[in-house]
Amino acid sequence: MTAPAVAREPSLARDLIALTKPRIISLLLLTTLAPMFVAGTPSWSVILWTGIGGYLMAGGANAVNMYLDQDIDHKMARTKLRPIPSGRLSARAVIAFGIAIATAATWLLGHFVNVLTAALALAGFYFYVFVYTRWLKRTTPQNIVLGGAAGAFPPLVGWAAVTGRVDLASIYLFLIIFYWTPPHFWALALLKQHDYGKAGVPMAPNIWGEHETIDQMLWYTVLLIALSVLPVTFGVFGLPYLLAALVLGGILLRGVWRIRVLAARGESWIPVAWKVYKYSLLYLALLFVAMAVDRHL
């Protein structure tokens, strides 16, 4: 009787952690914490509470997302092993957990950081749950374009935690993530077209076709690189960041261009799309690290 109970406890803990999508949150946390060092020199307590609050808020949003997507998660290979479709957790437990940790995050951020930080984090939660998951995700191939705003809230949260306000520099960090989202997600959507088709999610490659999707990935990448250098012109960053933004952006652009060339020739672009998807994660992480480093050189 003891053995299964012992085996079950860590499994529940693992499932609860899985509901928060920790791998995705690690990038969200980086894009929350790095802007704090761009905005100023935050105290350890502000870093700690913003990090904990940010994790719980994003984790809560991800858990609620799994509750709302339970009807399609079992149809996709990528999501069918999640706690609800695999029957390890009930839907009610998942929604309760998601709301509870998001509520805790709001209180922690409001109490230990500031009210604006809590309000921005909560706005990100609502945007992800209601605007992206409930409204856009299943209705438009531009779902991840506008939905990208949900993932772009973390820099605003980090910035507000240090300065108590939102200004043009922080809006640029928001825009960088907003315009990074299409090339990043469409690289994955190109690879998982069959899965999204089965689940009835109207991703751009399924609705517009590969050619238009790849074309837009290319232009979004050019737009992203141009936006990423603009903060240099009004004194937020210096030459080290400018060089990092151009080199990192150039590598991303080269990858997307390669997909376009291979697709035009009718050759397989799948391995390159995988590389672009993975590199786009590294790109965003390194770009935000470069921002923080540049400000403290």
């Binding site: 232009w219 979004y220 050019v222 737009l223 141009a226 250098v229 012109t233």
Partner: peptide, 21 residues
């Protein structure tokens, strides 16, 4: 001005592609 021009051209190309799509 170079970055602004690239942003504007990219945004126009994105809108054109969306209309085609």
């Amino acid at each position: 001005w170079l970055a602004l021009a690239l942003v504007v051209v990219s945004q126009i190309k994105i809108l054109q592609s969306t209309v085609r799509a």
